[in-house]
Simulated assay, not measured.
Amino acid sequence: MIVSHRHRFIFAAVPKTGTHAVRQALRDHLGPDDCEQVGLFVDKRFPWPKLAAIRHGHLALRDVRPYLGEETFAGYFKFAFVRNPFARFVSYCAFMLRGGDTFHQRPQDVMRHFLFTDPPVGHVLFQPQAALLLDADGRTLLSDAVGRVETMQASFDALCARIGIPSRRLDQVNATVHDDYRRYYDQPLIDAVAQRYAVDLALFGYDFDGVR
């Protein structure tokens, strides 16, 4: 997550949505009083000890809200990137088994393991994207805008225009290697991902084939 007082925005870093590329581009415009929490490639911590103790940078908007105060939180432009949950889940599986050949040799076995055998429900990368963007009531969307990974550069350009900063070409950072997500699925896997990430599909307008 990034909180910029200079440009009055909050970037919520939803995992597996190109967040490190966005972070790199946004850092060019941060002021001395702006702050970031991240634990991969760069180690930065928020000035609030309770949040700083969390070892990753994928914080929920509702978590930072009390530290900024209602007026500041309401007045800052809050945004994130989201991704088709079916594609994101494949990326998650490939990422978790990076450095070996298991996912590429037996992708459906890996997917079934995470969905049926031992779902890592407490792992921030496995949680629905909406978990970082909804209020505690589970219904109110706190972000003012979401970009889409499927149109990453165009989304980033539009968000920069909204913030009032110049855009630039996004780098590719921390990408996982896999084929088109559709080829990994059978119907039971489609049904399981649709059930687990139902809130993301409904809230952000996705289905198995893409944006509805």
Rank of each mutant, 00 (worst) to 15 (best):
A25S: 15
R183H: 09
R23T: 07
L170I: 02
F81K: 04
D207T: 06
V193F: 02
M1K: 05
L61N: 07
F81P: 05
L115W: 07
D63G: 11
D28G: 07
M111T: 03
F95K: 02
H56A: 02
G99F: 05
V211C: 13
F77N: 04
E70R: 14
H56L: 03
Q108P: 00
A74R: 15
V199C: 11
A25G: 12
A192F: 03
G164I: 01
A192Y: 04
A60S: 12
Q105C: 07
M96S: 13
G122L: 02
N174H: 14
R65V: 04
L59Q: 03
L30D: 01
C160R: 01
R168D: 10
A13M: 15
E150A: 08
R88W: 13
V146A: 13
Q153Y: 07
R6V: 14
F77E: 04
L61M: 08
T72K: 14
F81Q: 04
A130F: 00
Y184F: 09
Y76C: 08
T117P: 10
L132P: 00
I165G: 03
V3M: 12
A161K: 05
R169S: 13
D171K: 11
K78W: 05
F208P: 08
T151R: 09
V64Y: 00
A198M: 09
D200R: 01
L170N: 10
F116V: 13
V177R: 13
L51G: 04
E71Y: 13
V146P: 12
G31D: 11
R112V: 01
P119Y: 04
R45L: 06
P47R: 04
L203Q: 11
Y206C: 12
Q24W: 07
S4H: 13
L141K: 03
Q153F: 07
A53D: 14
V64K: 00
D118W: 14
I10C: 12
A52Y: 12
L159H: 06
L133Q: 05
D171Y: 10
F89K: 00
S91N: 05
Y185N: 05
F41Q: 06
A53S: 13
V110F: 01
D157M: 09
G18K: 02
F114R: 00
K78S: 09
A131I: 08
Q187C: 07
T17C: 15
L26A: 09
D28T: 11
K50W: 02
F89S: 00
D171L: 09
G164R: 00
Q187A: 14
G75V: 08
A194V: 08
N174F: 11
L134F: 15
Q129T: 10
Y181S: 00
L30T: 02
R196A: 08
Y197M: 05
H113I: 06
C93Q: 01
F156I: 03
D200T: 11
